[in-house]
Design a protein around this nucleic acid. Structure first.
Lengths: 155, 155
DNA sequence: TTATTGCTTATGGTATAACATGGGATTTTT
DNA sequence: AAAAATCCCATGTTATACCATAAGCAATAA
């Protein structure tokens, strides 16, 4: 039995006319082993779909109950936004999930989708958009690399 | 058997002349699996109906017994209001609950209603009102994004 | 290396079950 | 008796389960 459950790698799969996509088999294995369920929602910051295990959202719900008081406005707003958008996406016997039009539109996905691992979470992108985004991120990281080095060297 | 029970997603359903609405099937599944019961009451802060499992109200009641200073007098009053207003709403064999005129009027609901997941709770809105509310929340939350990060949503 | 075999995964298509919803019948309340 | 709530049946729609084929991958044998 494995100790850690991380969404990794970048996998491109077809999306059929009904919005069905194969969840990458590695991802499915995680869902099975954790006895949890995939939950997806529109990213707040990027034109992509974001996904995670239901366990993670459950933890979030518990954290919010503890840190913010029961009737606070802030808690109200956050829970509406996050849970109002999220949806459990169980996969069928062949390993496919169904993406709603709302999700597909937000990410601009039509006939194929890219799964990008993010550790505890993952993202689903339109292939072209992801290509551009990856380029942007790589450039960003390269720019910062010197300072990263410096930070590590002078302790 | 599932580990987590979260009300999620945003579902719009028709309300017929008798005040009957289909409870979204995901919500019904939670009720069945927890052997609990849906409880609804008028939101104290918004023009909407709020609902949760009876279990949650029970936890609220227990918390109040156990901690003297956890809740202020004001919050104590609020819980009184909730318990005074709350009502169990069983659903029939086709999965519908009946919303009273009192609840419908408070939310301004006539012929259709939107269920909005909130994790441990959910809300029922008039569709137009919800659309406006969602817009408000998105703007609000994006302004406060740092605190969103703290809550664990964005790594 | 190349070919062969078998296994897992991806994908297309179809049948089936579940759901939302309208309408009516029966029961309970007042 | 009238009104309201509850139950039951019927239907169109949609999502889900299932089956079949195709495509990738790995291990093994030639």
């Amino acid at each position: 039995m494995r100790k850690t459950f991380l969404f990794m790698d970048t996998i491109i799969n077809k999306v059929d006319a009904k919005g069905r996509v194969s969840l990458p088999s590695d991802y499915r294995a995680i869902v099975k082993e954790t006895s949890s369920e995939i939950v997806c929602y529109r990213s707040l910051t990027s034109p992509c779909i974001e996904g995670c295990l239901e366990d993670l959202l459950d933890k979030l719900a518990a954290d919010m109950e503890n840190s913010l008081d029961f009737f606070s406005q802030e808690q109200d707003d956050l829970t509406n936004l996050i849970f109002g958008d999220a949806k459990r996406l169980p996969f069928d016997s062949t390993g496919r999930i169904m993406l709603s039009d709302k999700l597909l539109q937000h990410a601009g996905i039509t006939d194929s989708a890219v799964f990008v691992g993010k550790g505890r979470k993952f993202q689903i992108w339109n292939p072209e958009n992801w290509q551009a985004e990856e380029k942007r991120i790589r450039a960003e990281v390269l720019k910062k690399r010197p300072s990263l080095k410096t930070a590590g060297e002078d302790k």
